[in-house]
Amino acid sequence: MASYEHPGSPDWRGPRGQHMAGTRQEISAAGSDDDLPEPEDLGAPGSPGSHSSMTTRELQEYWQREKGGHRHVKLLFEIASARIEERKVSKFVMYQIVIIQTGSFDSHKAVLDRRYSDFERLQKSLLKAFREEIEDVAFPKKHLLGNFREEMVSERKLAFKEYLRALYAIRCVRRSREFIDFLTRPELREAFGCLRAGQYPRALDVLVRVLPLQEKLTPHCPALRVPALCALLLCHRDLERPLEAFAAGERALHCLHAREGHRYYVPLLDAMVSLAYALGKDFASLKARLDESQLRRPTSRVFSLKELIVREYLY
């Protein structure tokens, strides 16, 4: 049987192909292969391979542009502090997680509070979905005694920082529902609970804080941000801020680009038509999109945007 490394094998890629495969493995092991240009790009028009006469400065500028074009959002995790909290029937350590975007000034750093049991639930859910991928990721073990000692708390701060860093370095994990929910679901549940209770200012405050983090975590799937953006629309609308509501709706529609079958698409368009009409904006094009979508996908029962929102994050 022909070896894959033998020139006679149909899968033999030659020295250059083997080198690129090795490079991919190394980058994947380091965290991500998002920044790696495809092999065919190396000889494409405008690339250094096709412009051997480029000066050193021009080459540097080219690779800077290429790197900027391929780079995914990268986040830095810190455990800023830890505090002991005592409730009527329990005592636990609350860890404050600070998440910032690297490479540029981040005016929307996220600050989250999570306890050991939250991390533990994340670990259990990830083991079910990605056991092989995270087998080398260390998780701080639970101890029967000494969990509140200063030395133990400090040790766990460092351990959880490394734990989050290691998880984020694994592409399939950082894009997983489990990882994203760990970092955003408690805040989203709070926001949607406030919205259901009619506490719109409080809901708005939480949404404004969590949405920037959700955007950084979900560039691969913008539709995941739609419920939160629609909740933002509803809060602004019910607080009689139609301009802000319309802006939130535009962001949500952008996330649903070419996804007419999404359950939020028709209710969102319907809400946007009313807002555009009230604001004196071009509602006719929105109404045309709404009518066209309803003709393509006729249904006997269409929920309003608010009816959809109040069903989100109940559990």
Rank of each mutant, 00 (worst) to 15 (best):
A2E: 07
H6G: 10
G8Q: 11
R13G: 14
R13N: 11
G22S: 10
R24D: 04
Q25T: 13
A30W: 06
G31D: 09
L36E: 12
D41A: 12
D41Y: 13
L42S: 03
A44V: 00
G49D: 04
S50T: 06
E58P: 11
Y62Q: 05
Q64T: 10
L75W: 00
A80Y: 13
S81F: 09
E86P: 05
S90W: 06
F92V: 02
I99K: 01
I100K: 15
V111D: 07
D113Y: 13
S117V: 11
I134M: 06
N147I: 01
N147Y: 00
R149F: 11
R156D: 02
E162M: 14
A169K: 15
L183Y: 02
P186N: 05
R189F: 02
F192L: 12
C194I: 01
G198D: 01
A203R: 04
R209D: 12
E215H: 12
L217K: 02
P219T: 08
A223K: 12
L224G: 00
C235V: 01
H236F: 09
P242H: 13
F246M: 08
A247F: 10
A252H: 04
A252T: 03
L256C: 01
R259H: 15
H262T: 08
L268A: 09
L269D: 01
D270A: 04
A278I: 11
A278Q: 13
A278M: 12
K281G: 06
D282W: 09
F283L: 06
A284D: 08
S285K: 07
D291P: 01
D291M: 05
E292L: 08
Q294N: 06
R296C: 05
R296N: 06
S300R: 14
K306P: 00
E312G: 02
